[in-house]
Design a protein around this nucleic acid. Sequence first.
DNA 1: TTGAAAGCGCTAACAG
DNA 2: CTGTTAGCGCTTTCAA
Lengths: 322, 322
Amino acid sequence: MSEMTVSRVLRNRGDVSEATRDRVLAAAKRLGYVPNRIAGALASSRVNLVAVIIPSVSNLVFPEVLTGISEQLQGTGLQPVIGFTNYLPEREEEVLYEMLSWRPSGVIIAGLEHTAPARAMLSNAGVPVVEIMDTDGEPVDAMVGISHRRAGREMARAIVEQGYRRIAFLGTKMPLDHRARKRFEGFTEILAKAGIEIADREFYEGGSGLAKGRQMTEAVLRRSPDLDFLYYSNDMIGAGGLLYCLDNGIDVPGKVGLAGFNNVELLDGLPMRLATMDARRREIGLKAAELVATAAAEGRERAEARIELAPALSLGDTLLRR
Amino acid sequence: MSEMTVSRVLRNRGDVSEATRDRVLAAAKRLGYVPNRIAGALASSRVNLVAVIIPSVSNLVFPEVLTGISEQLQGTGLQPVIGFTNYLPEREEEVLYEMLSWRPSGVIIAGLEHTAPARAMLSNAGVPVVEIMDTDGEPVDAMVGISHRRAGREMARAIVEQGYRRIAFLGTKMPLDHRARKRFEGFTEILAKAGIEIADREFYEGGSGLAKGRQMTEAVLRRSPDLDFLYYSNDMIGAGGLLYCLDNGIDVPGKVGLAGFNNVELLDGLPMRLATMDARRREIGLKAAELVATAAAEGRERAEARIELAPALSLGDTLLRR
DNA sequence: TTGAAAGCGCTAACAG
DNA sequence: CTGTTAGCGCTTTCAA
């Protein structure tokens, strides 16, 4: 029997007689044969891999996106391959180069901001590229996400409507985090329209966590005791802030209102529900994977879509009318 | 100039004159050339990929392991490629097959329990295989982790020593989660030696989170109001339980002591520090990656090591002498 | 339904 | 320091 016949059986392609097929399968199993996709890919110029490039996996944000991607890719024959950038543009460039050298069937990459060489690689990749999470900008090919500017604006509107006036922002140092920056910009834009200026701000570096939220909250309230609202760049530090306030007998949301961002499900179950905004992470993953899978299946070189999901505001118990 | 010279420049191999090198690099950059690793790998039978197979990334446990792996692999020229099994043995088998078909330079896989075909694939892979997280069992090649039986035993000892007697276990349904099961076994073993039987138990399915911890705690305390200790299978549900107790005026650790597992840093900052046990996740990732990298660099087909790290008990504020 | 030949884009090995 | 030749393990294409 020729290797050709074996190849046909293993790929379920072309016509092979039952008898031959069974013999091949039996032999493959007995020998523990695992086909060499490297050779297969080279010969067919088809690779069943989708490159997924995200900043990190400790952020609580990305696991859900990945879940969506995995789920959607099930059954398409495509496999996600994940790479991490640690929020470093140069690292992103390296990872992208590395992944493209494997000629994946598509690329899903977080954010719209990339170095010039990275953008060049993406537009020359010859496969569908979906930029995710953010829609405030121009994608190389397709994008799926929410507008973080809008998210910031909507939260600001809700806060102003409830009568809060002495408002502080607490979040990451932003040069690296474009999405947090855009939320901040949208946020201050609406405040400005209402004649309000950010009363104080507090930034942190390193991992977020409840403890970090406590520290920051203590620091900012000590510095500006008259604050009546704290807007956090994520739920984790927001939850820390909430716990700090409760521990210290600070009336929430009467004396101080609080809001976070992301709608982290893990945190349901806090003493109060933190006001937050759902970033639609899972849906972003699902949709991005669908775009890639469809385009790849049709042999298109681009996905070409712009999908903006609406961030969903939830007021919880910490942003109430007083 | 021959393609061979180009290849040499791009791989930094062999002697090439400065002038030629510069010309090649310039041309590569200008053309946006990205080498085809598929062809390269086929020709050289060298693949700079390390397969990393873990259950999921929403577990809070695995992100840290991945961080350790990524970190250690930096600079070795090796790249981790991650696959998810969702705790399903059949899925693990598929993912493993898929990954091995790319002929990675090494495999890092969570757990010691695999289907027979999966074990066969691992032992025939011809590359170093490191099984991580758990050391209670026989590895195919190498293993790095903690003994979950021992972790359960040590926690039980600490609890018994503090005089607790009416002890409940709260955790996942265990058929899928071997490590939780082993902790439970170690735990009950020590209790039995002290003449104590588990007073109650409560299991859950689906994602863990604070809310789940609250529900379970309420349910178990309602059913068995005389409990004096709750041992949770992870910190997240433990934290939920803690918040429940505090909200309901239950004296912790006076009336009820609490302990979790994992030492999730994110949760530092709760009103009380939960007793827990550090599973040494980051170090496991670091060590596993080091084993693979070393073996791969030396061209060995096996890593052959058994590294058991000691789980570190921290008593926090919820497992105090009363 | 099966087989034979050619070649995917690169690198090992050797020659110049 | 640079070039040539062969071939990695498959799939495509065409012939039988």
